[in-house]
């Protein structure tokens, strides 16, 4: 099944809203794109379009949360976390209010809209806010569970959503989401690949292909960027001796540096960060960009071979 995590997010909100009357949804004129329009159709009285005014939207969310509502405020990752960074920091983060922020169209797979809309800095921005939980689910099933976990957590959460429809790879019958706990998708002892979000499935394809080439890589799906799962990183560092991180995000400030912080403090091993290398994206079809930036399965396979050899 191919489905974008933004759509999974919209569906999950609708499902949870049935039993959680405290959920309200805010958007900034992008409901059709962030897929909060699914919620809007089902619960029009609990949906509020704030117009193209993201700073105010976050403040309104803070006020709603201060009165017991659980607002989910959605926009593109660029505007939700970039434009409204300081509102999130001061009106939501500092008072630790129960606001959930969803940033859609994250990373370069926004595609044709180009650099102004391709946010590769959202994870970095949100990680720096004390008390903020940062989630980056990798497929439909993971997003569904992540939204539930975000609701269960009493405090601010950032959830990254993707625009591109992607294959599901988790098994819905056995999948379990635990906030702050990475998931080992494949065991191995030559090297550990830690991936997050949309590129996890690409990394999975890559490490499977590498088996026939004599490289037995471990793959960890790090759906929670903050709080990062220290234990799984330290164990991987000890057992495999080196780590490669993969993210559709600037290699500055995202998963890669979060992993480096853990290894350098607790178990120093070489870490190679694969991602967007401190540059901007540009226009083009999403899959073409993913390949150009070396973040598709084929590109990752090549990079991992280069790094391991």
């Amino acid at each position: 099944m191919k489905i974008a995590t933004r759509e999974s997010f919209g569906l999950a909100l609708c499902e949870l809203a049935k039993t959680h009357p405290e959920i309200v949804v805010l958007d900034a004129d992008l409901a059709a794109a962030t897929k909060t329009d699914i919620f809007k159709k089902a619960y029009p009285e609990r949906f509020f379009d704030c117009g193209i005014a993201e700073g105010n939207m976050i403040g309104v969310a803070a006020g709603l949360a201060a009165c017991g509502k659980v607002p989910f405020a959605a926009s593109f990752a660029m505007f939700a976390t970039g434009r409204a960074y300081e509102q999130i920091r001061n009106s939501v983060g500092y008072p630790h209010l129960n606001v959930k922020i969803a940033g859609s169209h994250a990373g370069i797979t926004v595609g044709e809209d180009g650099a102004t809309h391709q946010c590769c800095e959202d994870l970095a921005l949100m990680r720096t806010i004390p008390g903020m939980v940062v989630l980056n689910p990798a497929d439909h099933y993971e997003m569904t569970e992540a939204v539930k976990a975000a609701l269960a957590y009493n405090g601010p959460v950032y959830i990254r959503l993707g625009r591109l429809a992607i294959d599901t790879f988790n098994n819905p019958d056995t999948y379990q989401f635990e906030l702050g706990k990475g998931i080992t998708l494949k065991d191995g002892d030559d090297v550990t690949v830690i991936a997050t979000g949309l590129v996890v499935n690409e990394a999975l394809k890559a490490v499977k292909a590498l088996e026939s080439k004599g490289i037995n890589a471990r793959l960890i799906n790090m759906h929670t960027i903050k709080p990062i799962d220290k234990d799984i990183i330290i164990k991987a560092a000890k057992e495999t001796g080196r780590i490669i991180t993969v993210e559709e995000h600037n290699i500055i400030g995202g998963l890669g540096e979060a992993v480096c912080a853990v290894t350098s403090e607790f178990c120093p091993v070489p870490v190679k960060r694969i991602g967007v290398e401190d540059t901007y994206g540009h226009s083009g079809p999403a899959l073409g960009l993913l390949a150009e930036f070396g973040l598709d399965a084929e590109g990752l396979e090549k990079r991992i071979i280069e790094i391991v050899k």
């Binding site: 700073g55 403040g59 309104v60 201060a66 017991g68 509502k69 509102q87 001061n90 008072p95």
Partner: peptide, 28 residues
């Protein structure tokens, strides 16, 4: 700081932000 001060309904100080929170409270 609303977290620690009884009677303070909203943390504020970064100008322009409190008024949005007040809108959220009124909406609630």
């Amino acid at each position: 700081n609303m977290k620690d001060t009884p009677g303070v309904d909203m943390s504020s100080g970064s100008l322009g932000q409190g008024v949005s929170a007040a809108c959220g409270m009124a909406l609630a």
